[in-house]
Design a protein around this nucleic acid. Structure first.
Lengths: 346, 346
DNA sequence: TTGTACGCGTTATCAA
DNA sequence: TTGATAACGCGTACAA
């Protein structure tokens, strides 16, 4: 605990004023005469007095903190998410309490615990049950991230439909015929939405989708695993792969290149996120740009200022970013850019 | 705030007992007769009573939380760090408060803020000034991560000297002659230690080191940038590159492959961390294995149980992991493994 | 075993 | 403008 001796009463005594005055000075809440103010400030600085957090919170009925619950996946996506949230929270003077569910069974208890220590809670899709979200919502403000929650809850999500646009691009513009989808819909509402958009594009264009998604996680290493599954199998490999995120796409490209295959000539690959690395690979990674940081900051703002926006979903737009990995002409980064052949190889 | 009506007094009234008894029941601190216990539990469950965090903390003089301060870099290293710390803290019932300094100027103020809300604080190397660490140490327990702090402070670090072993391996076993080092020592004590070990190995073997490190960050994209700097330059490119971490190494490999170069035949690459992806690339990434998760969990344990270990550094061992990217024979993952030529191309 | 009374540190209210 | 007093919710000596 902090300096236990130095509290309001003690400072007040030293300065020869009342505790109330010390409080007023320390938080600048009301007018105090210059003399007293000076006397108090001197004592405060001399002894490094800082108001005790509990006392203040108890009196103000306010924590000054926000909670962030996420599944515990690693990678740039969550890093960006956490940092965006954290930096926005710090902007308004709120501290951030972190809880990664990590697929544990006692997550619910931890969430309730957390709910008692924060003013608002951001919950990433796929981490907490609907029932628990409902329950927590009744005591503090909750915003669901990356998933369009029901109209009763506030949520911020990004448009997954763009995966459909991208899939149509592969099918129609490039003429690929055997597409694969890398990612696991179950337990992840955002991956589910992307998979559904992928299927919908097939249905619209009359193309035949794969029997099911290639089930791997969202880390780069999972992309390498997907490469094993798709390329080392006895079945005919796909001519284009839509990955649930950039990380797996990069892992897949790495796997393909390592096997002596060419991208996109032998196999086209697309991602989702448009993380910095996507523009730096050669060939550049065709992907869907998602405003991850905005997703985080908007969520934090919604939590801090509950007045501005009531419940309902805030949908952030996403865009297709065409680069070389789908077969489109690549804009070389640096002088060594290769010419990517436009059009498919069907 | 939580259900403001439902507090100890109210529950006590409902159950027809005293507040003290409710407290005893809710935390199982003392013996209570079965009947009263039953009555109280009924009311607690029926109305979902949860002890207010502030009241409890104020009375117990204890926060039940740990702080984690880190620079704000993204990538697998910090993800693993955060998660390891968080999972260990949850094990002991502590909540985690996050603060990413993000190279801001007002970090010191935020750190002091944080110090008033946690029982202990883990500070990653390169985030907070010595003076501030000293100051915070006087009020709560502090552990410095990834940097051997002075004997006055507790710290947990991993052995960077192994980079010297790896460098000697490149120079002596493989006979590489023009090594490069990718990473920015300044502001990052752990990168500094690796750079120094790299230099020491050159001195010991009489080899001539590069004029200076290739200054880029620690993200994968920085590896791609390093590839531009090293491979697109007019100067003769290095025949081996020691990267400050695996991420930049992978970015560099990606850049080299994208330029039509072969790894390790045209250029050897090594990393640091041994993240999952390192074993999955082809060729496999030669690197130094660092127990990142242990770094985090040991730190958390040190903070939670200040009794076990007093000040001083806890050094975790690291190991060289030889794979194909340095020129050693690679163990193929899957059937498509390529034969890597052992020995250098000097 | 149970209840009473006080302390934890701060802010808000109200009276001066 | 300032000060006294009452909350805020809980844990815990101490007394019964």
């Amino acid at each position: 605990m902090s300096n236990s001796r130095v509290n309001v009463r003690w400072v007040a005594e030293q300065a020869g004023v009342s505790p109330a005055t010390v409080s007023r000075v320390s938080r600048g809440s009301a007018q105090v005469s210059p003399e007293l103010r000076e006397r108090v400030m001197r004592v405060i600085e001399e002894h490094g007095y800082r108001p005790n957090h509990f006392g203040r919170a108890l009196a103000e009925k306010r924590h000054g903190s926000l909670g962030l619950v996420f599944p515990g996946l690693s990678g740039p996506y969550f890093s960006e998410l956490i940092q965006g949230f954290e930096s926005e929270a710090l902007e308004t003077g709120d501290q951030v309490l972190l809880l990664s569910s990590h697929y544990r069974s006692d997550t619910d208890a931890k969430v309730l615990d957390l709910a008692g220590r924060v003013d608002g809670m951001a919950i990433h899709a796929g981490t907490v049950s609907e029932a628990m979200i409902e329950r927590v919502s009744q005591t503090i403000r909750v915003v669901v991230m990356a998933h369009k929650a029901g109209p009763a809850h506030a949520s911020v999500s990004t448009d997954s439909g763009t995966v459909g646009t991208l899939t149509r691009h592969l099918l129609v513009e490039h003429g690929y015929r055997r597409l694969a989808f890398v990612g696991t819909p179950e337990g992840s509402p955002d991956v589910t939405a992307r998979w559904e958009a992928f299927l919908a594009a097939h249905a619209e264009t009359g193309a035949r989708p794969p029997a099911g998604p290639t089930l791997v996680g969202l880390a780069q290493a999972d992309g390498a695993i997907a490469a094993q599954k798709l390329l080392d199998s006895e079945e005919e490999p796909p001519d284009a792969v839509v990955c649930a995120n950039d990380e797996t796409a990069l892992g897949l490209i790495l796997g393909a290149l390592g096997r002596g295959m060419r991208v996109p000539e032998d196999i086209a690959v697309t991602g989702f996120d448009d993380m910095p690395m996507a523009a730096l690979v050669q060939p550049g990674l065709t992907t869907v740009r998602q405003p991850v940081r905005e997703l985080a900051t908007v969520t934090a703002r919604l939590l801090h200022a509950p007045l501005t926006q009531r419940d309902g979903d805030t949908l952030l737009t996403t865009d297709v970013v065409l680069r070389g990995s789908c077969g489109c002409p690549d804009r070389p980064s640096g002088e060594t850019g290769r010419d990517a052949t436009a059009g498919g190889d069907s």
